[in-house]
Design a protein around this nucleic acid. Structure first.
Length: 208
DNA sequence: TTTATGGAAAACGTTACGTCA
DNA sequence: ATTGACGTAACGTTTTCCATA
């Protein structure tokens, strides 16, 4: 079985499979951009903001730098919290467990968003590279067609007579180059074999 | 063993607030 | 002082997972 192995280099990415290292190694724990004024104690009148859908306008607090730092640190260790961890962290940060929970939810969402953006970028590049590859191969096919080289004569080892030549055709439906050969078996049973050599699509696809 | 059910947690989508240019 | 963009805390809903009957 003939398979054509093509290697491609995606600009800006060293190699796949799976995700390129530049994508894999990115620290998803980094706060996306993130700055902010020195928040001293804009905190908490605990009780009132525990509202509970009662129609009270929700108060939005800003976390202090220290709180953010601790939350980030905790997030680096595990992206989800069990109730115990949540409680402990809330205690440590002087926040309500619900706030810690919400922060982790949002943080996971930001991580995922960033990851998705990077994957999207990667796929765009990969698509561009494949398109270019496809163009090259099609040009190559055209050139081969234009050459109109006569088929090589292959002698049968059994009869010592010339075998019918294989033909190189383009499959109209999938646009793959197809090699078709008629094989003469000694028992005079004729077998038609079609070897589908997918020139254009035998590109190893990365597992994303 | 398989299926139905219910609760908890996570994911998702959206809103509202604070900040900055 | 106003406005629009942006980041993010908070919330409601949907989906997923798991234990139990």
């Amino acid at each position: 079985m003939a398979s054509l192995e093509l290697t491609m280099s995606v600009p800006g990415f060293s190699s796949y499979p799976s995700l390129p290292s530049s994508v894999r190694d990115l620290d998803m724990n980094q706060v996306p951009s993130g700055q902010g004024p020195d928040q001293e104690e804009i905190l908490e009148d605990e009780e009132d903001s525990s509202n509970g859908s009662g129609g009270a306008p929700r108060k939005k607090l800003r976390l202090t730098k220290e709180q953010s730092r601790l939350l980030e640190e905790s997030f680096r260790q595990h992206h989800t919290l069990n109730p115990r961890q949540k409680e402990a962290l809330a205690l440590q940060l002087k926040l309500r467990p619900r706030q810690v929970e919400v922060w982790f939810q949002n943080r996971r969402a930001r991580s995922k968003l960033k990851q998705t953006e990077m994957e999207c970028e990667y796929l765009k590049r990969w698509f561009g590279s494949l398109t270019e590859q496809n163009r090259r191969l099609q040009r190559e096919v055209e050139e081969l067609r234009a050459m109109k080289v006569g088929p090589p004569t292959v002698m049968s080892p059994h009869t010592c007579e010339p075998l019918p030549a294989s033909t190189l055709t383009m499959c109209p439906c999938c646009e793959r180059v197809t090699t078709t050969a008629t094989i003469t078996v000694p028992t005079q049973t004729k077998v038609s074999a079609a070897a589908n050599t997918a020139l254009s699509s035998e590109v190893a696809t990365p597992a994303l």
